[in-house]
Design a protein around this nucleic acid. Sequence first.
DNA 1: CTGAAAGCGCTAACAA
DNA 2: TTGTTAGCGCTTTCAG
Lengths: 342, 342
Amino acid sequence: MKQPTLKDLAKHLLLSTSTVSRALTNDKNVRRETREQVQEAAQRLGYKPNRVARNLKSGRSYTIGVIVPEMVTPFASSVLEGIQDAIADDGYHVIIAQSGEDPKIERKNLMMMQQALVDGVIISACHQTYNLDLCREFQYNGIPLVFYDRILSGLDAPRVMVNDYTKSMLMMEHLIHLGRKKIVHLQAPDYIYNSVERSRAYRDAHTKFGLNFDPALLVRAGLTFEDGRNAAARLLIAEKSFDAIFAFTDTLAIGAMNYLREKGLRIPQDVAIASFSGTALSTIVHPQLTTVEQPLHEMGVKAANLLLRLIDGVELIENRIVLDATLQYRGSTILPAEERIV
Amino acid sequence: MKQPTLKDLAKHLLLSTSTVSRALTNDKNVRRETREQVQEAAQRLGYKPNRVARNLKSGRSYTIGVIVPEMVTPFASSVLEGIQDAIADDGYHVIIAQSGEDPKIERKNLMMMQQALVDGVIISACHQTYNLDLCREFQYNGIPLVFYDRILSGLDAPRVMVNDYTKSMLMMEHLIHLGRKKIVHLQAPDYIYNSVERSRAYRDAHTKFGLNFDPALLVRAGLTFEDGRNAAARLLIAEKSFDAIFAFTDTLAIGAMNYLREKGLRIPQDVAIASFSGTALSTIVHPQLTTVEQPLHEMGVKAANLLLRLIDGVELIENRIVLDATLQYRGSTILPAEERIV
DNA sequence: CTGAAAGCGCTAACAA
DNA sequence: TTGTTAGCGCTTTCAG
């Protein structure tokens, strides 16, 4: 037999559907005896409330959408765990979509979320402006949007991120204190908000610490391992001399590092490499990467909490959360022997 | 104003809801003129069909659940892309849950899927038997289940996987042909189906190629990078001599490799390392990993196609799909100079 | 070709 | 405390 419905239960118990419904939702207006009777029968007949019906009634789907730019690195995975942890108790489900760093796919994903009637969306955008219009439309239609890590410029939306500028500055300081003078920056495309911030810190660090800024060392790299390799290759071909790299993210750093090592350069002796991200990738390569580690799980939790409150119609006083990232000094900038010095 | 409903549209056009509905679903029983009129108005007023209502009507949720054991490696990510590609056109959505290699969480995930009223589930199980009962219940309740990679033993369910045994045997052959005689196998816990298969091949290879089987070289390792490191450490402490490692998966291989390198061993000269998996991880470490590369995207596509057909009530003649994995020979077993020889 | 009406499973205002 | 009734937004007979 099919899944029993509320009506079936009611018929079986010779009660009205409303009473049964009330008994099942722990409404106080039910005699205890009745409630127990109903719950026992529900148990026995294997009754499961039909969420779809419930959703239609409530006008909610109890589903939130999460759109991530990529899942090649475990970045999104950690954030997702945080999100799941934060929402599980509230009976929400998560629909996940990956955009593959392609704003067009991101757009499709957003529209898919709309179709799926999500109650809200958590998103890390792969382009600073491309889907601005759609996001505005979401807000206009009352579907709250929360950003993490990669935000849209020009949209006043709740967000959870780290301080890209400050932490990048600290990382530059680290490299400079190590005595590095010709530091390359592998930057992401500037349609990514964080890229702008991190490279701004890179430039400002030169002024702040009295280093000569050489535009040729500011390299527009991309986002993938391959992009990192290519950027490193171009630097070698151009015969630019450099003694350190500060990369936008782990993938770029790893790509570049592997290439340089293949070409016989020693890390960190010849070239120190620092990154920004905080995924497990930074510890599985050799040498391990010095990096700005973001609290990814917490980022997910915070984003989800923001979203839940927005869904409940709470007016947020503070909707821009800045989390603290920590610098991890590892083998890609420091030789084991030096470790204690830092 | 709120999202307009079908009723709003109908009122606006002075038509009945049924006609509007028909026009929108391209039912043939509508005058072309009317249809165009309706569609134009729908467009203009920004009408979006309410899926929840539609679902309630159809008894389907047009959502499928995907349960993955972990998302630290990009394994699941690739499979997911395949799944998304396969289902997008059919209007299905995906709910994803990660079990973190914990069968208890996997159980919660399964129950969550049930709650979410998914039309079917694609799962890679983290334990061979733990959730057998629940999976049976799914099947009994008519919610189809498709497995990929990691299956349940004792459950006759559709599945998509590679031939673990054969490919492991080939990998062993590769190591043996390289002249390796004392090959370690880092195996996963034996509550994982594939682990049993791969280690069976490991043992059989000894017989087949006339190698001495030393039980001490068959190491129960685990699943994580850390497990790989620990296993390698134990081997060194035990002062077992070995000249190759065949690991259950990339994480173990990488963990072990990094540890051995830190201890001054040369890869592959002192120890050749081979793995089984096929994620991007194998190419970002140094040296790159020789591995059995699985067609992950295809795995996702195939699994999704199976599931869709099951949801549609199609009787499957062939519900066990075995995909072809390819051996990738890389720096962890072969020195660059030798590459052409293979 | 179009409209009226019923109903998917559930909740909730209103009555009793 | 319980039942009656209406309705969430849509599809789909059944009449016209």
